[in-house]
């Protein structure tokens, strides 16, 4: 078991299905079980693609420099 911070509420989460997860990483948690690690580089890559495809004129980081 591990402890996860759900935007301020900390609860116990079963990590049996995600034994490789590290402290500080993000995961999808369903009925008390972490089932998938959120891949940060993929999250950023999808957003970057919007710019590459011309869907966005500027990327998110440029418009929200504090993020």
């Amino acid at each position: 078991m591990g402890r996860a911070d759900f935007g301020g509420v900390v609860a116990e989460v079963c990590l049996e299905y995600l034994p490789e997860i590290q402290i500080g990483e993000y995961a999808i948690v369903h009925v008390g079980f972490a089932i998938s690690r959120i891949n940060e580089s993929e999250a950023l890559r999808t957003l970057a693609q919007f710019r590459e495809l011309g869907i966005l004129e500027t990327d998110f980081a440029e418009r929200n420099p504090s993020v």
């Binding site: 935007g7 993000y26 940060e40 495809l53 869907i55 966005l56 998110f60 418009r63 929200n64 993020v67």
Partner: peptide, 20 residues
């Protein structure tokens, strides 16, 4: 929460919708 903000961003949503 990390990455949630971007995927809920109204401007990005509008841009993807325009592309559709």
């Amino acid at each position: 929460m990390k990455h949630l903000q971007e995927y809920r961003d109204g401007d990005i949503a509008d841009a993807v919708a325009r592309s559709i």
